[in-house]
Amino acid sequence: MNLLTTVISICYYVFIAYVAILMIINLIRSRKWEQELLYVIVLLPFLLRLFRLK
């Protein structure tokens, strides 16, 4: 069970990193300030988790 949860956790962090990168790319491509602000706000919990802060 521990091995399984470890594998799931690693997949989860990889997934978070992938989504975070997608949002950063979208932030760079975006042309509306409202969307840019939204991307930044949505990105925060992903980064907090990725850096193991929360």
Binding site: L27, I28, W33, E36, L37, V40, I41, L43, L44
Partner: peptide
């Protein structure tokens, strides 16, 4: 973009 990113 830089200002918004700095805010984040």
């Amino acid at each position: 973009k830089l200002i918004i990113s700095a805010f984040g």
